[in-house]
Simulated scan of single mutants.
Amino acid sequence: MKRTPITRIALYLVLFAGAVVSVAPYLMTLNSAFKEPAQVLTTPAWQPAFPVTFDNFAQVWSEYDMAGFLLHSLIYAGVVTAGQVVFSTMAAYAFGRMSFPGRDALFWGYLATMMVPQIVTLVPLFLIMREFGLIDTYLGLILPTAFGTPYGIFLVRQYFRTIPRDLESAARIDGAGTLTVLVRVLLPLSRPILATLATITFITTWNTLLWPLIVTNGDATRVVTLGISALKGQYSSQYHLILAAAALALLPLIVIFLLFQRHIVRSIALTGLK
């Protein structure tokens, strides 16, 4: 259907408004992070910082071990992301391309666990980690989500199902085994969806607060979300430091998105094609 100039303009205005609503909180956080402590509460968040100060970043970096918190989050999110990509890919290949008794029932039963709220499994997971002596350790942080999630497996499985089976059949005729087909045929064609899964997993893990709050209790494993929440006291809060810490925590996510945005867009485009 042809779009008239008025329709096109209206569409762009709606998209622009959506972009402003989505980006504005991040811009206001970055802007307020450069304000002096008195200005944070006395000026609107969108008012440009004047004079610009970097003291907030220097203070939160030197006095509150922000470098350590960022490093812990990087290790936590990086290992979980690598585990999710590897194990979700293997499980997705089994559910999407291999045939075995009860495959579909097992897959849909596993997928149904997505409807279980995280709070329901929080206490059992904590008790398991305590029995294995993994409280306040990196293993305790990583293990619950490092071996794949229903969402990740479903995402990759659906993408695998769009790849023609003729490619796999041709590889098997040439003598390729299951692992060779997965590594040398399917994975090169699935880079967009794997990049999407890695990006979503990294951002979700980086922003996680509840599980690190439950399973860690020391500075040796404290992630950046806990570090930021510790700046908010019961009776007073240092908002200028909270905003500076939030801006520092936001930068790695922006870098990750800019690196993988091309693959994310391509995966969305390809999944819409037959």
Rank of each mutant, 00 (worst) to 15 (best):
T271E: 15
E168N: 08
S229W: 06
F202M: 09
A198L: 09
V183N: 07
V224E: 01
R165V: 11
K232F: 08
T199Q: 04
I264M: 12
T199R: 05
A245E: 07
Q234R: 15
L182V: 10
A244Q: 01
L189I: 02
G177S: 08
L209D: 02
I203A: 03
L259F: 15
R266G: 00
G177H: 08
L186A: 04
V181G: 00
N207G: 08
T204M: 06
T271K: 12
A220Y: 06
R184L: 10
Y235L: 13
L226T: 09
Q234L: 15
S229K: 14
I256A: 08
D174Q: 10
T162K: 12
F260Q: 11
L243H: 04
R165F: 06
T180F: 09
I228K: 07
L250E: 07
L273F: 11
F202T: 06
G227C: 04
I228S: 06
L241E: 04
I193F: 05
I214F: 09
L270I: 11
Q234A: 14
V223W: 00
R222Y: 02
P164A: 05
R165D: 12
F202G: 03
L197T: 06
R184A: 09
Q238S: 12
T180K: 14
Q234C: 00
A170H: 06
L258W: 04
K274T: 11
P192I: 01
L179N: 05
L189N: 14
I254Y: 03
G175T: 07
L187A: 11
G175Q: 11
L226M: 14
I242C: 03
I173D: 06
I214D: 03
I254A: 10
I264E: 05
I163Q: 05
K232M: 14
V255K: 07
T225K: 03
T221I: 00
K274C: 00
L209Y: 15
H263W: 14
I264V: 15
T221V: 03
R191K: 15
Q234F: 13
N207W: 02
A244K: 00
L189V: 09
A198Q: 06
R172D: 03
G227N: 06
L258N: 07
I268T: 10
K232W: 00
G175E: 12
I163E: 08
A249I: 05
L243A: 05
L253G: 09
V265Y: 05
Q234D: 13
A220K: 13
A246K: 02
V265D: 04
A176P: 12
L251H: 06
N217L: 00
F257D: 03
A170G: 11
S237W: 00
V223H: 00
H263Y: 15
L273G: 03
V185K: 08
T201Y: 03
